[in-house]
Design a protein around this nucleic acid. Structure first.
Lengths: 332, 332
DNA sequence: CTGTTAGCGCTTTCAG
DNA sequence: CTGAAAGCGCTAACAG
């Protein structure tokens, strides 16, 4: 069906070696160059990357593992990763784990069997385990957004704890004391952000009502439910901190359905500005992550690893965050 | 580095053929089976799909081309496609074209060179051109959501024109006559939905004020701008139809920033219910596409093509839509 | 059921 | 600069 290098050999009378050399940017006599180029056009020749990869052991492809393609956060990150990779001449293989550690493990093996040159992982599992096969196969891995327990892998992330700390501090500065949090307790980012919340509260000498800590999982549903729960409290909080995009979204839904008005009745602080802040009334104060840099740095880091044969010491890049202004906070 | 079938041969004393047979689910003596399985574990053996694909000419991988991973519509579709593919034992290679036909063309070649067994494409370009190389390489292609000019390729979509027609009809039934539309004029879906709008208006004998037709591109920005434009009109429409998710989002932003109240001042009808309708006040009426079925049907269709050697006649699957209730329409 | 042999399409020495 | 030959890791006949 498809033309091979051999067909080009037939048409040009040149040897396989010469054609291969041309294909890989080597020097070839101008006349031969023309011959080859014509043959390629005539035959619609396209390199068979399978065969090439088999011998070179490089596929110029990196695998990207995401916990969910449905999450806008990942979609945005993927876009930046894809851009950077393309510029560097790399293709990417995106694998969606649907928030399932089991599928994630399978995906890693899938990527290995596809012989990707490296992996960028936005993990669902917090353990190192799923990545072990990649390490064993000698494939460099860069974690993005979420490190794993064992900090032995390169990682690009933000200081989640600090970011949360500052967000809650802003609430405190507005004299809020009864500050609730809706967070995920299943994942690294959620746990860190919760710690940041505690840091701020403790430092301010605010004691935290256990009812104000709504910990569950990372989803719109949970945000919605969690907010409902807070709204139903007799001693309702005066401010709430949402620790990720999906939770923010769900929580706002719940508020919209309630009789509460923000910021008069309740002040809000969200996380991850992905369009929502512009669509939702009132505009939410939000913690902003530098998504573009995160994607770019991860690619840069991975590519530099791919070059070297020996793994150097693991490295961590921590990017800064900021808080966007809104009108969802009323001073008390 | 990585173990090969040859290493297993060494350890087990069996021949390559037997091992290969085992790997491909053939019958092997129980004792040999155990030997092989142990060796695989010991050596962390993982099939080299490059080598396998090189000889079988099947990679059990399908490429998915999306115009943008950032679009929630695609993210959702991708999730369903991924699920179905995984169930069928196929891996997927996602390529993001960043809304750029040029990148799209490159992506097609990338997929071909990776020897995918088939391609599911949610295209940015409306022309057949970008897909030609795949056709030439004999790789089956199924279009999703958006067909191309030349209707010679399998396609799964909705009846966009009819869906829009019915949406506008609902507005008309509520006695609206000054109905505006914000749509994309660059893409198939936008154009079809615009036609549906005209159908409904014409049938109702409503003449359409040219100012009410705001045609541009598929983006939040354009939705925002377009709505601003409509709001600024002296003779403002009483209802507006948004023809996709991003435009709906942007338009709602604009309304939120204005003095208008929906539905008292203006009635709204959106497209694609992706979370937004729950977060946005008031809840929008929206045209709903059966995204899950779309993804599943596309996979099903592609897989059935991959089996056969000869391309049968192209087929089109058109799925039904519905309109979700909201409270964004006030009768006049 | 098992082993031998011959490639898949490409790159890569190493001579010339 | 070009060519001949070997081989990447695997599967697919075909014998045995």
């Amino acid at each position: 069906m498809a033309a091979t290098i051999r067909d080009i050999k037939e048409q040009t009378g040149l040897s396989l070696a010469t054609i291969s050399k041309y294909l890989n940017g080597g020097n070839v006599l101008p006349e031969n160059k023309v011959k080859i180029e014509n043959a390629i056009k005539d035959l619609h020749y396209e390199v068979n990357e399978l065969a090439r990869g088999l011998v070179t052991k490089r596929t110029r492809t990196v695998g990207v593992l995401v916990y969910s393609v449905e999450s806008l956060f990942n979609g945005t990150l993927l876009r930046y990763i894809g851009d950077s990779l393309r510029k560097a001449g790399y293709g990417l293989l995106i694998c969606d784990s649907s928030n399932d550690p089991q599928i994630e493990a399978e995906n890693v093996n899938f990527l290995i069997s596809k012989k990707v040159d490296g992996i960028i992982a936005i993990m669902v599992s917090t353990e190192m385990d799923n990545l072990l096969p990649a390490k064993k196969a000698g494939i460099p891995v860069v974690l993005l957004d979420r490190p794993v327990q064992d900090g032995s892998i390169d990682c690009v992330k933000i200081d989640n704890r600090m970011a949360a700390y500052r967000a809650v501090n802003l609430l405190l500065k507005n004299n809020h004391k009864k500050i609730a949090i809706i967070c995920s307790e299943k994942e690294y980012t959620g746990i860190e952000r919760y710690k940041g919340y505690l840091d701020a509260m403790n430092q301010a000498g605010c004691e935290v009502d256990p009812q104000y800590i709504v910990a569950g999982w990372h989803s719109i549903e949970f945000g919605y439910e969690g907010m409902k729960r807070l709204i139903a409290l007799e001693d309702r909080p005066t401010a709430v901190f949402f620790t990720n995009y999906e939770i923010s979204l769900g929580a706002v839904m719940a508020i919209n359905e309630s009789d509460l008005c923000c910021p008069q009745d309740i002040s809000l602080m969200g996380f991850d500005d992905l369009i929502m802040s512009h669509v939702v009334q009132p505009k939410l104060y939000m913690v902003i992550q530098p998504m573009k840099e995160m994607g770019e740095k991860a690619v840069e880091m991975l590519l530099s690893r791919i070059g070297k044969k020996e793994q150097e010491l693991p490295m961590e890049i921590i990017l800064g965050t900021k808080i966007s202004d809104g009108n969802s906070i009323a001073p008390l």
